[in-house]
C-alpha cells in the first residue's frame, strides 16, 4: 500500500497545562484508505493522544468536527486529503470567534443560545388532528435547504457580525432555523417570530457579506433565508 507523510501545524491549548496557546508541528503517515482529514486526525491522535477534537458520525451529518482548516471553516470528515497541496503543512485551528475549551474544541454555548432564542420548535396551538396535519408537496418543498442544517457552527463563526456581537446578533445558523419555522405552513407563529427578530442587532446586523454561504459544508444558504425574513419585515411595514 502506498503511504505518504502529511505535515500538520495544529493549534494547541490545554488550560490545565499551558499558559498560552501554541502551534504544534507534527507529521503523520497516511495510506490510500485514509481519504478524509478526519482519518488523518485519528492517526495523529494515535501518535499524540492529547490532541483534542470532537468527532462522531464521520459522514458529515452530526456537525461535531467543524474546525478552521487552512484558514477556512469546514468539517474534517468531509475534507478530502487530496485537496491539500504537497509540501505545505495543513494548518488546523479551532473555529474562530468562540472561546476555546481545549485545542480544536470550542465552547459553543453562545451559538446554541442564539439558536434557542428563535423558539426553535413548531408552534401550532390548535388541538392536533387524529392523523397528520396535511401539507402539500409544494409547501413541503419550501423547507428544503432549511431543515437540513446540522448545527455545526461553520457559518456563524465565519461571520464578522457574529464575531463582534455574538450575544446580540442571532447569526446565520439561528436565522436559517428561524426561517425554517416561518416557512412551515403548519406553524402559526409567523408574526411573533418576526417581532422577535425586528431589532437592529438580532437580524439587521447581517450585512450580506456571504461568508456564511461560503462556509456551509452542507451547501445551505443562510443569506437567502435572511433576505426572505428581511423582505417579510419590509412587506409587513407597508
Amino acid at each position: 500500500m502506498t503511504t505518504r507523510t502529511l505535515q500538520f501545524n495544529i493549534y494547541r491549548y490545554d488550560p490545565d497545562q499551558d499558559k498560552k496557546p501554541w502551534m504544534q508541528d507534527i507529521a503523520v503517515e497516511v495510506d490510500s484508505t485514509d481519504r478524509k482529514l478526519l482519518d488523518a486526525l485519528v492517526k495523529l491522535k494515535a501518535k499524540d493522544d492529547a490532541i483534542a477534537f470532537r468527532r462522531s458520525c464521520r459522514e458529515g451529518v452530526c456537525g461535531s468536527d467543524a474546525m478552521n482548516i487552512n484558514g477556512k471553516n469546514g468539517l474534517a470528515c468531509l475534507t478530502d486529503l487530496s485537496v491539500f497541496p504537497a509540501g505545505k503543512p495543513i494548518v488546523l485551528r479551532p473555529l474562530p470567534g468562540l472561546p476555546v475549551i481545549r485545542d480544536l474544541i470550542v465552547d459553543m454555548t453562545q451559538f446554541f443560545k442564539q439558536y434557542h432564542s428563535i423558539t426553535p420548535y413548531l408552534i401550532n396551538n390548535e388541538p392536533p388532528p387524529e392523523r397528520e396535519r396535511l401539507q402539500s408537496p409544494e409547501d413541503r418543498e419550501e423547507l428544503d435547504g432549511l431543515y437540513e442544517c446540522i448545527l455545526c457552527g461553520c457559518c456563524s463563526t465565519a461571520c464578522p457580525s457574529f464575531w463582534w456581537n455574538p450575544d446580540k446578533f442571532v447569526g446565520p445558523a439561528g436565522l436559517l432555523a428561524a426561517y425554517r419555522f416561518i416557512a412551515d405552513t403548519r406553524d402559526q407563529a409567523t408574526s411573533a417570530r418576526l417581532d422577535n427578530l425586528e431589532d437592529p442587532y438580532r437580524l439587521f446586523r447581517c450585512h450580506t457579506i456571504m461568508n456564511c454561504v461560503d462556509a456551509c459544508p452542507r451547501g445551505l444558504n443562510p443569506t437567502l433565508a435572511i433576505g426572505k425574513i428581511k423582505a417579510m419585515l419590509v412587506q409587513r411595514a407597508i
Binding site: Y121, L122, E130, E132, Q135, L143, Y147
Partner: peptide, 17 residues
C-alpha cells in the same frame, strides 16, 4: 403521527399525507 405534530418535515404525497 406524534412526530409529525412535533413538526418533523416528512416528505408528502400529492394528497398532503
Amino acid at each position: 403521527i406524534e412526530l409529525e405534530h412535533y413538526g418533523m418535515p416528512f416528505d408528502r404525497t400529492d394528497s398532503g399525507r
